[in-house]
């Protein structure tokens, strides 16, 4: 993706609004998240193999790809669930340690999260994370501050992270139709 010749200038393309749905299996308590472009995703319990999934939550989000304006390289970000602003909630977290290392340099740390269950889903590669970071730094057009994006895999217990997710969790929700 990162060719030697091209100094990529990224732009966001193929933006699609949709919802990140969180489901839980009532048999094994496993939690699954996925992005849906549907207006009517399944709200009724459904069986998938050994799992019985029920929708627990939804939040509006957006899917996108990045394309280089110079060489037309297209990079998809289907593995990205959401970005989180690290607020340094745990002093023993590797992201916090890295943030401390750069303190005073006006570098803001964001964490790229994948979809659950993390062990079963494809995760963003380091190369894609770097491309995402380059894109936002190019878009910021700022010389006095920058952002750094790292993988959630740096966090021991991602579910306990108290940073700020960039998701719309209250403005527009999907909900099951009311029963008449």
């Amino acid at each position: 993706m990162q060719t030697q010749k091209c100094k990529h200038q990224w732009e966001m393309v193929n933006t699609n609004p949709g919802f990140i749905l969180t489901e839980a299996c009532h048999k094994c308590s496993q939690v699954s998240t996925y992005f849906s472009r549907e207006d009517n995703p399944p709200f009724e319990e459904y069986r998938d193999g050994e799992h019985f999934w029920n929708v627990m939550a939804s939040a509006q989000s957006v899917r996108f790809d990045l394309k280089c304006k110079l060489c037309n390289t297209l990079v998809t970000f289907d593995e990205l669930s959401s970005l989180l602003l690290c607020t340094g909630c745990k002093k023993d977290c590797d992201v916090y340690r890295l943030m401390e290392k750069y303190s005073g340099k006006r570098i803001w740390f964001y964490v790229a999260f994948g979809f659950k269950p993390y062990a079963d889903k494809l995760m963003l590669s380091d190369e894609k994370i770097k491309i995402l970071e380059d894109y936002y730094n190019q878009r910021r057009d700022s010389t006095n501050s920058s952002i750094k994006i790292v993988s959630f895999e740096m966090i021991d217990d991602p579910d306990s992270c108290a940073g700020e997710f960039i998701i719309d969790s209250s403005m527009l929700l999907l909900a099951p139709p009311e029963k008449k």
Binding site: L85, W108, I166
Partner: peptide, 27 residues
């Protein structure tokens, strides 16, 4: 996060602290 520009003023009724995460990301 997908459409606003760096250096823009963002007008919203949202006041939850996660607006800071979005605003900071795109300057």
């Amino acid at each position: 996060m997908s459409k606003a520009g760096a250096g823009n003023i963002w007008v919203t009724i949202q006041s939850h602290k996660n607006i800071i995460a979005a605003a900071n990301l795109i300057d």
